[in-house]
Design a protein around this nucleic acid. Structure first.
Lengths: 230, 230
DNA sequence: TCAAAAGTGTTTCGCCTACACCCATGT
DNA sequence: ACATGGGTGTAGGCGAAACACTTTTGA
């Protein structure tokens, strides 16, 4: 005789941020429960009358006071029956990006329980969350090649070197500066502004802006963004 | 005061089969419930102590007596709260492939409630299942380009023209025969057998076999399957 | 001998790659 | 004047694209 279904549905979010040649992800310190004092991904149970997407955005708001720039479903974790030692819980994981002005390192914020961790300094997390982050990172790396998603990690106006460094950092490989710039600009999805960023040293840089509507337009015409390296 | 969570978790499977230059998908005729007499994807509620993957394979066995060749998670549908008019149900959809000997058209089988539908003759299904199939088809099309997944839709031994026609059919575009063959064989993931298939007309063809272990091996060395067309 | 599908090479073209020097600014 | 990062062009190689005739069999 099979018992009535008793499975909980949760959502979790992997939020990436980029700043100063570093990739970060947002973690929350558990205050109660089995994983007390452990760091975990932001997330929680879905409410009865709430869509999955709404559940994620709500949790991000509640737990970290943050609104994201890009959100997509990553994967649903539900094969390990004992992911959560209390109940059977399946978790629908989401993948999100924010730009740097939302990324405020812990020292600078009031939130005692939310913090940004550099991607190579992530501690051992509660549940199977380290595995989820692994998957999110591969997704991010893969997507950089075939979707202009890197711009969602940058501020509205940015010097060209920012996007170049972002690719270098996240993919962890060298890139030929000239070829990269040539290729990226050839897509015509960046708008050159007449603004200039003065740095503390070196030649000032023109600022660029990602042209969303142009990208949408090209996409409808069958254009596929794709960028590769030697 | 929020009520305790009451959301059901289901799995659904989109199973593709290929035969005679046609792509098929497996559907089930509902016998009870709100979608009575409507065709739907095979699937059902997950049991308490059962992994998601096991739930899918179990349902496929029970409802269609079939074992698949390839299975991967597709997407979790849970944004439309009223997908199912009775309860809040979220469905984890899986994407599966079978080879032609598992594909037995309805006329030839006893199963009165399971049938293969040609992909362009799919009726209006229950729930949001037409949308799920849409997503599965785009996934299939995309994957053909960067994963040697087409072979899971073919029998163990096949003439080269089979894989060529499969690509033509599913992607719905013309392919240069010579270039396609050259490219595909250059990967060295096909083993030429000494068998020959006699057709009713035309020159007999050598049979090939997909070399799984060779592919695995190459993959580990950093090889990426990729095939594109003009 | 005809119909039907299998099998096979070469040339052209465009894109990716490799590569190094000058420019504009602050100190 | 020097240090720092920004900005730029070209030649060569390689893989993708275009393209049509011959072969083997059954009828």
């Amino acid at each position: 005789m099979s018992k009535i279904q008793d499975i909980k549905v949760a959502v979790d979010a992997i939020v990436f941020g980029y700043q100063n040649k570093q990739l970060y992800t947002l973690l929350i310190q558990q205050k109660y429960g089995v994983a007390k004092d452990k760091w975990v991904l932001p997330g929680g149970l879905v409410k009865n009358e709430e869509s999955l997407t709404n559940a994620v955005t709500r949790e991000l708001k509640e737990e970290a006071g943050i609104t994201v720039n890009y959100l997509e479903q990553l994967y649903t974790f539900g094969d390990a029956i004992d992911r959560d030692p209390r109940n059977r819980v399946i978790s629908v994981a989401y993948f999100a990006l924010v730009n740097p002005d939302k990324l405020v390192l812990k020292a600078d914020t009031d939130a005692k329980d939310a913090a940004w961790f550099a991607i190579n300094e992530i501690p051992k997390l509660g549940f199977d969350h380290n595995k989820i982050i692994e998957k999110a990172i591969s997704r991010l790396k893969a997507k950089l090649h075939y979707q202009p998603i890197g711009f969602d990690l940058l501020p509205k106006y940015f010097p060209f070197s920012d996007i170049e460094n972002l690719y270098k950092t996240i993919l962890n490989q060298d890139i030929d500066r000239r070829n990269f710039r040539k290729k990226m600009l050839s897509f015509a999805i960046l708008k050159e502004t007449d603004q200039i960023q003065k740095k503390t040293s070196g030649r000032p840089a023109k600022l660029f802006q990602f042209n969303h509507s142009k990208y949408k337009e090209l996409e409808e015409k069958g254009f596929h963004f794709e960028i590769k390296f030697a």
